[in-house]
C-alpha cells in the first residue's frame, strides 16, 4: 500500500540512451524528481530534449537505460494499468464514433460493459461532449477530438494522466479554452497529471510544479513550485505573479539560446 504523502511517481537517476546506427545517443541524463498523488506537474523544454521519451517511460512503453522509475512504489516495467495517455494528436479511430472510441479502453482492458458505458457517459458529460457521442471523429473540431481522447484516457479511472503536448496542434483560442477545461477536469477528478508542453504560459497556468529541461542530453535544469491560487482564471495570466513565474521559466531558454517557438 502507498504511504500517505509518499510520492506516486518517483524517478531516481533515470537515464535513457538510444542505440542508433551512429552509436549510442544519450537522450536523458540522470533525472531525479518525484510527483505526489493528485499533483499537476508540467515538463517544459526545447524540441527534441526527450520530453516525450520521459512520458513514454512513465507509461511503461519504453524502458529506462539506468536508474529507477517507480509508480506507487512499484518499478515501471511494461504498460501500466493505472495510467491513461493523451497524445499530441487525438489518435481517434476513424471507424468508431466518439462513444465507441472512448469505449476502446474498456474493450481492450475487458472492463464490464455496463459499468464502462455508465462511466463513459459521465466523462462525456464532464467534457461537454453530450450530443456528440454518435459522431465520427472527422465531424468534430480539433478541440472536441482532444476532449474525446481525454475521456478515453480517463475511462479506466487511472490515478495518473499522462499528456504529451495535447494542445500543441490547436489554435491559440481553443488552446486557452482547453487549458481551462483541463483545470476543471483535474479539479473534479483529482488525478495526478504529468503534462509535456512547449508552452510556458500553459505550464505555469496549469501546474503545481514545472520541471524545466535542458537541451540534449537533457537533464533537469530547474523545478519551480507555482504558488498561485486555484481555480485559476485566464485573467491571472496578466498578473505580475504569473509573469514572474513565466519569466523564471523562460530565462532558462534564453540562457541556452534555444527558444524555438
Amino acid at each position: 500500500m502507498l504511504m500517505p504523502n509518499a510520492p506516486l511517481i518517483e524517478a531516481r537517476g533515470v537515464t535513457k540512451i538510444y542505440q542508433t546506427k551512429d552509436g549510442p545517443v544519450e537522450s536523458l541524463r540522470s533525472l531525479d524528481f518525484s510527483i505526489r498523488d493528485g499533483e499537476f506537474v508540467s515538463v517544459v523544454g526545447p524540441s527534441g530534449c526527450g520530453k516525450s521519451t520521459l512520458l513514454k517511460m512513465v507509461a511503461g512503453l519504453l524502458g529506462v537505460t539506468a536508474g529507477s522509475l517507480t509508480l506507487a512504489g512499484q518499478p515501471i516495467e511494461g504498460p501500466q494499468k493505472d495510467v491513461g495517455i493523451v497524445f499530441q494528436s487525438a489518435v481517434l479511430l476513424a471507424w468508431r464514433t466518439v462513444l465507441d472510441n472512448i469505449l476502446l479502453q474498456a474493450e481492450i482492458r475487458r472492463m464490464p460493459k455496463a459499468e464502462a458505458l455508465a462511466k463513459a457517459q459521465k466523462l462525456i458529460a464532464m467534457a461537454g461532449l453530450e450530443g456528440f457521442e454518435g459522431k465520427y471523429p472527422w465531424q468534430l473540431s480539433g478541440g472536441m477530438q482532444q476532449r474525446a481522447s481525454i475521456c478515453r484516457a480517463l475511462l479506466h479511472d487511472p490515478s495518473v494522466l499522462l499528456m504529451d503536448e495535447p494542445f500543441g496542434a490547436l489554435d491559440a483560442l481553443t488552446r486557452e479554452k482547453m487549458n481551462l477545461e483541463l483545470q476543471r477536469i483535474w479539479l473534479e477528478s483529482k488525478k495526478t497529471v504529468l503534462l509535456i508542453t512547449h508552452s510556458i504560459p500553459e505550464a505555469v497556468f496549469l501546474s503545481d510544479r514545472v520541471i524545466v529541461m535542458s537541451e540534449r542530453p537533457s537533464s533537469i535544469a530547474a523545478i519551480y513550485d507555482i504558488d498561485l491560487p486555484r481555480s485559476r482564471t485566464l485573467d491571472m495570466m496578466g498578473t505580475p505573479e504569473f509573469s514572474v513565474y513565466a519569466k523564471k521559466v523562460r530565462s532558462h531558454f534564453y540562457a541556452q539560446g534555444s527558444l524555438d517557438h
Binding site: 507509461a59 501500466q80 491513461g84 497524445f87 499530441q88 479511430l93 471507424w95 481492450i108 482492458r109
Partner: peptide, 27 residues
Amino acid sequence: VEPDMLDLARSMGATRLQTFLKISLPH
C-alpha cells in the same frame, strides 16, 4: 498505421491479436 496509435494500444495493454483486429485491420 500511426506509431501513436500502436502506442495507444500498447498503453492499454492490448494483445497482438487485439491490436490487429481493433486497429491495424480496420485501418
